[in-house]
Nucleic acid binder design. Structure first.
Length: 508
DNA sequence: AATCGGGGCAGCAAGTCGAC
DNA sequence: GTCGACTTGCTGCCCCGATT
């Protein structure tokens, strides 16, 4: 250990992934400083595999914190770690699994309470016969269950465990694969009340399934790592990235910054192919800028919002040191939000400081989220998102036509992204539909700005509610409509709309 | 305060897809 | 072809905020 000094104590504290602490002895010899007494226990307890890579972070308090533990095949270990401890909700250990309690006594079921999070569901036809899908309450799912598809273990009163697929997609949360087997084994029937109790969760997992930001490492291999970077193949990393990557249709980039040099930002474009997800354009800039050497270690910490923080370790295993000038402000800072939007806050305090920054700035300026903000003039490059938004809205506001039309701003009121994608329907203004649209269910043609036609089902529900349903989802996806987008539906024929889309510039 | 319109959500049902 | 897993269109109901 390179950074220990003589004044420091000869004791250190190791903190494991679950927060459990282990006291070890620091032995300083001519050959270096070692972790000794207590290390073996720590090693055994965590079942650290041979060839694992342990990256040690020393805290200011003097404690030593081995925060990252990976095998050479990082995904396997990362998954193992998560399985056992980090995500007890997803794949808990035997003693800490989610327990399902079944009771045939309705009173008992109703009076059931627990210090653990739980929800009750009375089995319906659809749960135990028809579809064998169990929808989990939205609030519970959002609060306690994984934010992406995951495996969940259900343990029945007999103690038998069943793995079911928990699907969290498009605002729907449900148990699918494996649920059928559970139903059969437990002989569940319509009317049974089940209480699903989440047992023995790790505290921090309540607010987040991941105790700490996920990490992974890559070794620099000439002509492989230096050309592009394969992001994720592992289950665990997929869990982590899936949401962001799914949502990044409009924003296929991420930010790479070095721990030592957070002032330097590389915008890297993300490519998703059948072979995996890659970081490509911009990645080479990062490699060049930091002059990465063969066999150096790059430890990535995923901070969310498509932001990776990278620590570069020399072949010796120690962190690289730099002698850079004092901090500068970012030339361009861009962050993605979970709903797929992004924001750019431009700071023009300094000029390009490195090739990377130049690239970053160039990217932001040149492409500036082209799908969202039409760049019809150079002056737009200097506009803030707010300005662009305002301009966009003005354009939409100023729309006029000889044909009947109505405007709708997705998510203008309480409508969320979820409504756009999950509900698969668009409610229409009552007055408009009463006046111009059929009084019964009908098929309506929507034509997008590029002239492509879509058929959607128009529903006139008891003359009360009017909305687009079947086919609307396809229109939404095809035209990449998102929260905040403004659409103007211009009735150009008896059952035909020309749709003008004003995609909004995203931020929070 | 009452009414109304619209958004949110969950249940139901039927369809699709893939493995065997 | 069958079965299981999963998707998605449709519906009803509740709730909330705006309007009267």
């Amino acid at each position: 250990m390179k950074h220990t000094s003589n004044e420091e104590s000869d004791r250190a504290i190791l903190e494991g992934p679950t927060g459990s602490q282990w006291h070890v002895k620091l032995c300083k010899t001519e050959k270096g400083t070692f972790l000794q007494d207590g290390w073996q226990d720590f090693f055994k307890f965590l079942l650290i595999p041979i060839k694992a890579v342990i990256i040690v972070e020393k805290e200011h308090s003097g404690t030593v914190k081995p925060v990252f533990i990976y095998e050479t095949g990082i995904e396997a270990v990362a998954e193992k770690r998560i399985k056992r401890e980090d995500i007890p909700m997803l794949i808990p250990s035997d003693s800490e699994s989610q327990e399902k309690t079944i009771t045939e006594d309705k009173d008992a079921a109703e009076s059931f309470s627990s210090i653990h999070p739980y929800f009750k569901i009375q089995m319906a036809h659809v749960h135990v016969i028809l579809s064998f899908v169990l929808h989990t309450p939205r609030e519970f799912s959002k609060k306690y269950l994984p934010s992406a598809d995951a495996k969940i273990i259900l343990r029945n009163p007999s103690g038998n465990c069943f793995t079911v697929n928990f699907i969290n997609r498009k605002g729907r949360h449900y148990f699918a694969g494996g649920w059928r087997a559970f139903v059969r084994e437990a002989q569940l029937k319509k009317g049974d009340i089940c209480v699903f109790k989440l047992k023995a969760m790790v505290k921090s997992a309540i607010s987040s399934p991941f105790r700490s930001p996920p990490h992974f490492f890559k070794v620099v291999i000439p002509n492989v790592t230096t050309q592009h970077l394969v992001l994720s193949h592992s289950l665990s990393l997929k869990c982590v990235f899936s949401f962001d990557l799914k949502q990044s249709d409009l924003f296929d980039f991420c930010i790479i910054s070095s721990k030592k040099l957070t002032l330097h930002v590389a915008l890297t474009w993300v490519y998703r192919t059948e072979k995996g997800t890659f970081l490509q354009d911009g990645w080479q800039d990062f490699v060049r800028y930091y002059s990465l050497w063969n066999n150096e270690f790059l430890v990535f910490r995923y901070d969310g919002n498509m932001h990776f923080n990278v620590v570069i370790l020399h072949k010796s295993g120690c962190e690289r040191e730099y002698a850079f000038p004092s901090e500068k402000r970012l030339v361009g800072r861009l962050s993605r939000k979970r709903d797929g939007s992004a924001e750019i806050s431009t700071a023009r305090a300094c000029q390009s400081y490195s090739g990377i920054e130049a690239v970053a700035e160039k990217r932001i300026k040149r492409e500036d989220i082209p799908m969202l903000i039409p760049s019809d003039s150079e002056s737009q490059e200097n506009m803030t998102i707010e300005d662009k938004d305002a301009k966009l809205k003005m354009s939409a506001e100023s729309f006029t036509s000889i044909h009947p039309y109505f405007k709708t701003e997705l998510a203008r009121k309480k409508m969320t992204q979820m409504k756009v994608y999950r509900g698969f329907m668009l409610h229409l203004p009552r007055e408009f539909s009463k006046k111009y649209l059929p009084s019964t269910n009908a098929e309506i043609i929507l034509r997008n700005p590029s002239g492509k036609y879509f058929t959607v089902n128009f529903r006139n529900n008891k003359g009360n509610r009017h909305y687009f349903s079947g086919g609307w989802s396809a229109f939404v996806r095809e035209n990449k409509l998102s929260k905040g987008s403004i659409c103007i539906f211009e009735l150009v024929g008896k059952s035909e709309f020309s749709v003008h889309i004003f995609p909004v510039a995203h931020r929070n």
